[in-house]
Amino acid sequence: MQSEIDKTSQKFESEIEKIHNLEDLENLRILYIGRKKGILNSLFDKLKTLPNQEKVVLGPLLNTLKNTIESKLKAKLNSLSAISGNKKIDISAPGKNSQLGYLNPLTIVLEDMKDIFHHLGFTFVDGPEVESDVYNFQKLRLHKDHPARDAQQTYYLDEDILLRTHTSSMQIRYMENNAPPIRIISPGRVFRRDQIDATHLPSFMQFEGLLVDKETTLGELIGTIKYFIRECFGRDIQVRVYGHHFPYTEPSIEVEMFHPKLNKWVEMGGAGIVHPEVLSGVGINPDEYHGWAFGFGWERLAMLKYGIDDIRLFYQGDKRFLEQF
């Protein structure tokens, strides 16, 4: 038996040298340590028939042989696998891409705004696009015959129901249902009867900001707007405001920023201190609370930020447009 063990060992050593692929290696493995008909299997069977003195000596030798064969087979397997994995490939050939989709840049801008305004403690809320004349105009001090409301610019569905002309109606809706302190941003669609061209559509998007608190000033309003514009366009951007008029704010201002590429002042939107009559109209005491609000064009912001020149592109869903953002 001893000589059989030695011979098996030598034979294995010479045979494993000749193995160069995984298939042959597997066959060799089965030949030597395959469960049913492997050479070592039959040697172990033979061991069982030997007298004890021989078993005690040959047993461990046979085990050692088995372990050696197993570990050498394993090492060979590893080195063969590594080699076959090392075939040269062209690293510069294209990767297998999936077809990615794209968000509309309006959504990207909104997410940026959420980032900026969440930082200041503002909550985002949404409101109805079809509104009543009362919420869109009257509660904002734009009474039925006010010269500031031009009937040609409003889409009416009937006498008192219209497509909202600004997001300012949300100020009223929110204040009627929530007590101060209030900090909200309300982005959404608004509608104006305009001739359709590269910068005008029947509807466009605005976002409204409103803050109502025991103490707040015009300085905080302007500071907040400056902060937002600078976070959006760059920390060095110049911002200026000038006097204007809205029936629902007093004082009222317009906001402009100096656009570095266009090299001129561009309008960003309007803002102002909420008129005390608007506050008392929603049940907030104007002697106790002060508020301010602003309204900016949402597409306009995206157009200024990205240099988009036609508002209709936001609505056409062209992949060649969307994938740029």
Partner: peptide
Amino acid sequence: TTLPSGTPP
């Protein structure tokens, strides 16, 4: 100009 000084809701 400053940022809002009150407590956020």
